[in-house]
């Protein structure tokens, strides 16, 4: 437990972290001294979040930057893990961190996907739990044939290439709209 750094008597219940140029500074204050210094408790985005303790009820509110810390260290209300922990270790503490740190995490994840900025909305395009794989057998066969075709051309097997091309034409005709409609149903 920390003792308030101002009055040096009361237990500190408010812990502020500032990271500047990779140097971490921590300030620990009691509620009285914090109020004296002009920290308005009412306007804190989420007290449990600010204090780094587990909230009794899971907050549905979006975490907002902590106005007390010049460069705020967000804390996950569920597991107490901090954004600075993630920056140090490169790993997250629990699945709720994706919500707690979303403002900072989303651009990181979006950057991995594409060099061009990605707008709002879902990033995930793959499978959903409890649903069968989104893999469509016709699309898969088309992709396999495209690879076979490339290989046949590279190896100058032109007769094979012609045969694969005609198979591809046939399959693409079959795959048209119905396959796409099926994909959509799967994802919704």
């Amino acid at each position: 437990m920390y003792i308030c750094q101002i009055c040096k008597k009361n237990p500190a219940t408010i812990h502020l972290t500032d990271i500047h140029n990779n140097v971490k500074k921590e300030v620990h204050l009691c509620a009285g001294c914090a109020a004296e210094k002009g920290f308005n408790m009412q306007s804190a985005a989420s007290l449990p979040q600010l204090l780094g303790i587990k909230a009794k009820k899971q907050s549905t509110e979006e975490p907002r930057p902590n106005r007390f810390a010049p460069e705020e260290d967000i804390i996950c209300p569920k597991c107490g893990y901090r954004w600075s922990d993630f920056k140090n270790k490169g790993r997250l503490g629990c699945s709720e961190d994706y919500h707690a740190f979303r403002e900072k995490l989303r651009p990181l994840i979006a950057n991995q996907l594409s060099a061009t900025p990605i707008g709002p909305g879902p990033l995930h395009r793959g499978k959903y739990p409890g649903k069968k794989s989104s893999v469509d057998p016709v699309t898969r066969e088309i992709r396999n044939l495209e690879l076979d075709l490339r290989r046949a051309v590279d190896e100058e097997r032109y007769e094979d290439a012609a045969r694969i091309k005609s198979e591809l034409r046939e399959l693409r005709g079959y795959a048209g709209t119905p396959a796409k409609a099926a994909d959509k149903t799967e994802l919704n």
Partner: peptide, 19 residues
């Protein structure tokens, strides 16, 4: 499973998130 419609399957390292 820990899953989110926006991010997909949630993983401890964000470089594995999604699928």
């Amino acid at each position: 499973y820990a899953f989110d419609p926006v991010y997909g399957y949630l993983t401890s390292c964000p470089t594995n998130v999604g699928t």
